[in-house]
């Protein structure tokens, strides 16, 4: 038990400190406030604000779409709506989807892109790949939180003459809210940090995207590109980007805690 604790905490501390030490020292204000100039990967100046914005423009809409789709699926998976032999089958499918490597979603989105005759990547298909990536994550965690809503609570709602829809919307939703919030942020965290699914679909750019068909830079993909360069100064930029990504993910988990706590206020134990 102690050993597993040591491994978990130890590796967390190690990863975070490597990134913080290397990243914070090579991070500068200009990196955060400027877009990339010339060949950013070859050591030219400028920053990566365009990638921060790009990542948010990919992950936020993807999370929103995935959330809407996921909540519908998760509600529908409950036993009031479909028999449990169907829902367990769908759950297995979702678990398989969860396990699919994200590069596969990337390739899938790319295939569709090519079939439509589009080349070079776009925000739109990045969002598409990320949405697919996030759907199983959000669906399963929303599903789990709905599944544990006490039967007696649902009985109470139905006995008041609520329809299935009213019960789901007013009662089950409130009770499951902490899990729903956690699911959204889990999905978002996965989406903003994933490189493989957007590697092939968003391309690259030094500017802010102005339309959904524009290419864009994103944090995970520029980390990949920067870290692969031979010069030490460029590699250090990768740490700086990773540091920013880490901060974003960290603030997400703080937000999760805050909102989970806030939405737990009314739940029934």
């Amino acid at each position: 038990m102690l050993a597993s604790l040591a491994i978990v905490i130890g590796s967390l501390i190690l990863i975070v400190s490597v990134i913080v030490l290397n990243g914070a020292s090579s991070l500068s204000l200009e990196m955060l406030t400027q877009t990339s100039e010339g060949s950013f990967y070859l050591g030219s100046g400028g920053g990566f604000l365009n990638a921060i914005v790009g990542s948010l423009l990919l992950a936020l809409p993807a999370t929103a779409f995935a959330f809407i789709i996921s909540v519908c699926i998760a509600m529908y998976l409950q036993k009031e709506f479909i028999p449990s032999r169907f829902s367990s089958f769908i759950r297995i499918c979702l678990d398989i989807m969860w396990g699919i490597p994200s590069i596969v979603y990337g390739v899938f989105a790319l295939t569709i892109m090519i079939a439509l005759g589009l080349h070079g990547g776009s925000v739109l298909f990045g969002i598409f790949a990320l949405t697919l990536l996030e759907i199983p994550i959000i669906t399963r965690s929303v599903d789990e939180s709905i599944k544990v809503v006490p039967h007696g609570l649902k009985e109470s709602a139905y006995s008041l003459g609520s329809t299935r829809f009213e019960t789901s919307l007013h009662v089950v939703r409130r009770q499951a809210m902490p899990g729903i919030v956690a699911g959204i942020l889990l999905g978002f965290g996965r989406g903003i940090g994933d490189a493989a699914s957007i590697l092939l679909t968003v391309g690259d750019s030094n500017y802010f995207p102005t339309s959904v068909l524009d290419q864009t830079a994103a944090l995970p993909t520029i980390i990949l590109n920067l870290a692969g360069m031979p010069e030490k100064t460029v590699q250090n930029k990768a740490y700086a980007v990773a540091f920013v990504l880490l901060l974003i993910v960290l603030s997400i988990s703080i937000l999760t805690r805050y909102f989970t706590k806030k939405s737990s206020k009314y739940i029934i134990k």
């Binding site: 007696g152 009985e155 109470s156 006995s159 009662v171 409130r174 009314y266 029934i268």
Partner: peptide, 17 residues
């Protein structure tokens, strides 16, 4: 159901005020 209120063994208030 609306014609019949139900009070169960363990009270389950709705998750609201």
């Amino acid at each position: 159901r609306k014609k019949m209120g139900l009070i169960s063994q363990k009270p389950y208030p709705l998750p609201m005020s």
